[in-house]
């Protein structure tokens, strides 16, 4: 996992609620056996007419040149539905390093963090403020300070991040390294359980 400390970037707004993982990456693209290449199918059915990559839907944000950046901003309950980690892989592979919303589904949140994609939970009011910004506006996210700032206005909110997960993100550590270091404790636990 790559370390993530700070992001300053423009953002892509997706002001819809309950964006489920079937929209993020439809099931028919889950046949791969590696983690790569899912970005091209991110939001596939919202992005193209009749599943044809030659026919981009012009009203969808990913197809609008005025929007770009490493941050996706979406309505509440983002990532609900299936546990497919392919959703997080697709978001990362497309080039987003953070998703901002007022509410995340649990499994998606874990999956994102396990791949170095930061879920930033902000208040409804702050989310609306971000949506009102011009497409050229930038946001700054500081993982260590746990803050997100609208650069144009200086408005800032802090977000929650589990201290353990924060250390992982800042340093690019993953949970498996940690669990492997606890093997003796786990074996001891097993003996006591039986």
């Amino acid at each position: 996992m790559k370390a993530l400390q700070k992001i300053q970037s423009r953002f892509v707004p997706l002001p819809m609620e309950n964006i489920d993982t079937d929209q993020i990456i439809p099931a028919r693209f889950l046949k791969a056996t590696t983690r790569d290449g899912f970005g091209q199918n991110l939001f596939r059915d919202w992005r193209y007419e009749q599943d044809d990559t030659a026919k981009p839907k012009t009203d969808f944000v990913l197809n609008q040149a005025i929007y770009s950046g490493e941050i996706l901003v979406a309505g509440k309950n983002f990532g609900c539905g299936s546990s497919r980690e392919h959703a997080a892989w697709a978001i990362l592979d497309y080039g987003f390093y953070a998703v901002v919303s007022s509410f995340f589904a649990d499994i998606f949140k874990n999956n994102a963090l396990n791949n170095g994609v930061l879920p930033v939970t902000v208040s409804d009011a702050f989310l609306q403020k971000i949506f009102q910004q011009a497409s050229t506006a930038t946001l700054s996210i500081d993982v260590d300070k746990q803050t997100i700032t609208i650069d144009a206005t200086g408005e800032q909110e802090s977000f929650e991040l589990n201290p353990y997960k924060k250390t992982c993100l800042l340093n690019g550590y993953d949970d498996i390294d940690f669990l492997l270091s606890r093997k003796d404790t786990i074996e001891k636990f097993e003996k006591e359980l039986i």
Binding site: H86, I107, N110, N114, D175, I176, L179, R182
Partner: peptide
């Protein structure tokens, strides 16, 4: 769980 967590269980029979 997600696939990273599947890997955790493979490696340690535990999840965080």
């Amino acid at each position: 769980i997600g696939t990273s967590e599947v890997e955790m269980v493979f490696a340690s029979q535990c999840v965080l």
